[in-house]
Design a protein around this nucleic acid. Structure first.
Lengths: 336, 336
DNA sequence: GTGAAAGCGCTAACAA
DNA sequence: TTGTTAGCGCTTTCAC
């Protein structure tokens, strides 16, 4: 292995000088810098990140902690990850996806080993135990999602209020007055404090009340099967419904599939609108009209916010909340 | 931060002894071991992985290198990752998903930094440039997928021969004689040496010839949209087709959707069979019959093979090739 | 069975 | 502008 010592010897300088050009931490005359750089390429030097990390107490690794066992890794999550990794790379950090449990145990282990400089937390619960872990261990972190108590926490999230307002406004504008919200299954312990469901549902109740339309909410697990089953319940219990708003991407595909099976023509007889990533929307038939989850923006923003924190820079100014925007598909139309 | 030195002082032993109990590298009397363990819990000691890595020249981190920009991260990939991470954890390693480019550049950087002990390579091409990088840098690695030249490379992969035999055999057994294979887009530079397509297609030609049925192959990109478009081509150019075998999960969903749109009843008029993960199969309508990609097994096997290599253990005995097994859905039936 | 001490490759004072 | 040097926290010989 070629070390800085080798480079220094070859360039006829001290190891410290090599460090200075590598990190750009002190001025070095162009001549010596050039000699050092030449030596580095000649020798094929690659700096040892582990040694650097030990000496500087920074690894330049950011972990995106994903609760692999409790949430399936869907398209939206893939968007978060890809964009976050890209943002990190641009700032000379490595961002890796680190599967951890939802209870905080594995996260404790991870951050206790001082292997990562910071953590981007995905799928945050309203009272997430992992946040206590990060605070206790004084690990810098950023949230994609929000807890209930947000004081001082670096976070980015979907603006559910605006999103739901826009979604319902759009359907209302088309003439729909009999809507149903298909939310998550709040009885499921994994989700009963899951922000996206809780906040969207609250926003929906508020917005629906504002329009003076009846508020009907169906609960539904995050699976296609559950979505299909929800479609059955929907037609049985609320046959007069003309439009459905679905929060989960898997549920939405199931609702589409279920309505199709039951012979409802979409969008002629019933409209469906869902919060999801565009890749997913293309999977249904007809193609879904969606409120597009701002995955790329959130992944990038979250990572940038964390890195600013790591480098002691001034916090990123707002916006921290990004609304999902309407993308027209083929699943919405005026009511029959 | 609590260091081994603190623990040693508190337990009244030397730092070396602490290391011995931590790593179980030398015999220690039960009495002192107990004192040390007590001290560790009292102090809340957590070993610093970075220091350990520097001293031992092993990080116990395995990177699963994923060509994030060239391949979308789908359900099958998620299965690989989850099971691989689990297998690593059981052997006290960390496995993280590391997004890298397909050309080997970023991979060079990653392994040059001696941050990871080994690499699990996904989405391997038949002549993958990344493999040269790993060999040149003497990085231990395992492949999920196969190159053309395999001498001495640790790898696991789908047994495409058996898989295609079983798939075609199943359709043939149902009575189908007019089949079409929807393969990848070999004109796309990302895929023209992509093992799964190349091997499956070769196997298909062989098996079809064996049954004496005409060999028709449609090329199709890895997207739902492309799949839909392939369905159109299929019905236009080969209207007599009674069964379709699709290799890519996204394409398959698109083919289903496309056939649905064009008014073909599945499976009454045409059967569809695809190679994919069961989660994905549930997304289509009707639910797809699949050859289930052995993601969990491959992820686990690949990781275990790599770890054995890292620890100098004897290589894992075969099987290295796992066939996908038939999972009945609702998209296949005898021909009309 | 336990301890002393020499690194692992690098960073960052401090000195020159 | 450049060099000297003391760590970073741990592993691992080699003595005892």
């Amino acid at each position: 292995m070629v070390t800085m010592r080798d480079v220094a010897k070859r360039a006829g300088v001290s190891i410290a000088t090599v460090s200075f050009v590598l990190n750009d931490t002190k001025p070095v005359t162009p001549a010596t810098r050039e000699r050092i750089e030449l030596a580095m390429t000649e020798l094929g030097f690659r700096r040892n990140m582990v040694a650097r990390a030990l000496a500087s107490r920074r690894t330049r690794i950011i972990a995106m902690a994903y609760p692999a066992l409790d949430h399936r890794f869907g398209f939206s999550a893939a968007e978060f990850f890809t964009s976050a990794a890209e943002a990190a790379r641009q700032q000379d950090y490595h961002l890796v996806l680190w599967p951890v449990g939802n209870d905080g145990g594995e996260l404790t282990e991870l951050v206790g080993q001082s292997l990562v400089d910071g953590v981007v937390l995905m799928e945050v619960q309203l009272d997430d135990p992992r946040i206590a872990v990060l605070q206790r261990t004084r690990t810098p972190f950023a949230l994609i999602g929000r807890t209930t108590a947000l004081e001082g926490l670096t976070h980015v999230d979907i603006d559910f209020d605006t999103t739901v307002e826009d979604a319902v406004g759009y359907l209302h504008g088309l003439g729909h007055r009999r809507l149903v919200l298909v939310s998550g299954d709040l009885a499921d312990p994994r989700f009963h404090t899951y922000g996206p469901y809780v906040r969207s549902e609250a926003a929906y109740r508020r917005v629906a009340a504002g329009y003076g339309i009846e508020t009907i909410v169906l609960e539904c697990s995050d699976s296609t099967r559950a979505g299909r089953e929800a479609a059955t319940r929907l037609l049985r219990d609320h046959p007069e419904t003309t439009a459905v708003l679905v929060l989960n991407e898997y549920s939405a595909l199931g609702v589409m599939s279920g309505l199709n099976r039951l012979g409802r023509r979409i969008p002629d007889e019933i409209s469906v609108l869902s919060l999801m990533a565009p890749d997913t929307a293309a999977l249904s038939n007809p193609e879904l009209t969606i409120m597009r989850t701002p995955g790329p923006e959130l992944g990038r923003l979250g990572t940038e916010a964390l890195i600013r924190q790591l480098e002691g820079a001034t916090p990123l100014p707002p916006p921290h909340l990004i609304p999902a925007k309407l993308h027209l598909g083929e699943s919405t139309a005026p009511p029959p």
